[in-house]
Design a protein around this nucleic acid. Sequence first.
DNA 1: TTTTATCCTACTTATTTTGTAGGGTAATGG
DNA 2: CCATTACCCTACAAAATAAGTAGGATAAAA
Lengths: 135, 135
Amino acid sequence: MLSKKTQYAFRALEVLVKKYEQGPVLISEIAKKKKIPLKFLENILLQLKKDGVLDSKKGKGGGYFLVHKPSKVPVARIIRVVDGPIAMLPCVSLYFYQKCKNCDEKHCGLHDIMIDVRDAQLAILEKKTLADLMV
Amino acid sequence: MLSKKTQYAFRALEVLVKKYEQGPVLISEIAKKKKIPLKFLENILLQLKKDGVLDSKKGKGGGYFLVHKPSKVPVARIIRVVDGPIAMLPCVSLYFYQKCKNCDEKHCGLHDIMIDVRDAQLAILEKKTLADLMV
DNA sequence: TTTTATCCTACTTATTTTGTAGGGTAATGG
DNA sequence: CCATTACCCTACAAAATAAGTAGGATAAAA
């Protein structure tokens, strides 16, 4: 399951998508509108900024804004930044790979199944973008 | 990500699949063979028994064994019993549904995306069975 | 140079996961 | 019928992760 933090991230991004190219949006505005704890949201947006999804301006008239067109940012990217691995096992993760101990990947049926699942997940999550968050 | 517990469960099931219809297998034997903490494994197998995946015999010559043919038990079932929800959001889970607060499912893009992901996951996890664990 | 608003680190608390303890219950075999 | 075997069950402890808080540093603008 996606963490609460990740769900907060998506709800915050909704606001930023809606205001895309309309100037920076205050953290406090997002927090209020989406009922997210302010300081927690601060951390989340900072993480997204470090990854290059968001950028920010300080001082009066400042705030956060999207760097790219919403339709250019896959949902998978957000999940990876905020939540971490998408795959169901460390040994099949593309971005967070870790060898599983006591298990030979060449002779592990579960491994093979989870590769299929991962590919099925990514087929959707890499295609769907922030633009698809809006209905 | 699947919990360690769930990964233990699958590894234990491998043993039981291999010995399908060859009589009960001791918890201690599985624990030793797969390097799983004995008492922890006991809990896992008990959970699987309560769900009807496994059955057991007490006393001398006792142990655990599969109730159904391995090819009749979907991987999804094991995950649900040991790990819980498969879906990435509570509001799209079939077996563990929970309404998400501050979010109207009829107007939530993320909801729709996660339904697609869930269906893609289940297409595989409901089709693949314990028989597929063996290679 | 004051105000505004993000940046950054560290810390606390809550929750979940992982693992342990210890006795209870049922079946088997002598 | 009773001792042994092996699963059954509950509760608890420890470790890890997630969620949220605090407080000042930094930078931009007016």
